[in-house]
Simulated assay, not measured.
Amino acid sequence: MSGALIVVAEWPKNDREVVRVVLDEYNGHPLVNARLWFRGDGGEMRPGKGLSVGIRHLPALAEAFSRALAIATEQGLIKEGAN
């Protein structure tokens, strides 16, 4: 990856925060990072709580979220067109 941050997706969580998913690197190790970002006092976006795991865990993470989506949809928890 050669140190390049790749923003995969970003969407608003609420008026103050966004969820950002990125491919990143730390000490030469590739990571997938899903994190809340919030606007700091100076107006800049700052990282908050989130999850960073080695890229090798991405297939298991994707499968887990895919299953969660399927179950939530099956249970009627996901409304069409809702974010």
Score class of each variant (00 low, 15 high):
Asp15His: 11
Gly43Lys: 07
Val32Trp: 06
His29Met: 06
Ser2Gln: 09
Glu10Phe: 01
Arg46Ile: 15
Val8Gln: 10
Leu31Phe: 04
Pro30Ile: 02
Leu58Val: 04
Pro12Asp: 11
Gly43Glu: 00
Arg39Gln: 14
Leu58Gln: 02
Leu58Asp: 02
Ala34Phe: 10
Ile55Phe: 08
Arg35Ala: 02
Val22Cys: 10
Ser2Val: 09
Ile71Cys: 07
Val22Trp: 00
Asn33His: 10
Arg39Cys: 03
Leu58Arg: 03
Gly54Asn: 03
Asn27Lys: 12
Glu74Thr: 03
Leu51Ala: 13
Ala60Gln: 13
Asn33Glu: 12
Gly76Glu: 11
Leu5Cys: 10
Ile71Gly: 05
Gly48Leu: 09
Asn33Ile: 14
Ala9Cys: 08
Gly3Phe: 06
Glu10Lys: 06
Gly48Ile: 13
Ser52Tyr: 06
Pro12Tyr: 03
Ile78Lys: 04
Ala82Thr: 05
Lys79Trp: 00
Ala4Thr: 13
Ala68Phe: 05
Leu61Val: 15
Val18Cys: 05
Gly81Val: 00
Asn14Phe: 08
Arg20Asp: 02
Asp24Glu: 14
Ala9Met: 09
Asn27Gln: 14
Asp24Gly: 14
Pro59Trp: 04
Pro47Asp: 12
Val32His: 02
Arg46Trp: 11
Ala82Asp: 07
Leu58Cys: 00
Asn33Gln: 10
Leu51Asp: 00
Val32Ile: 15
Leu69Met: 05
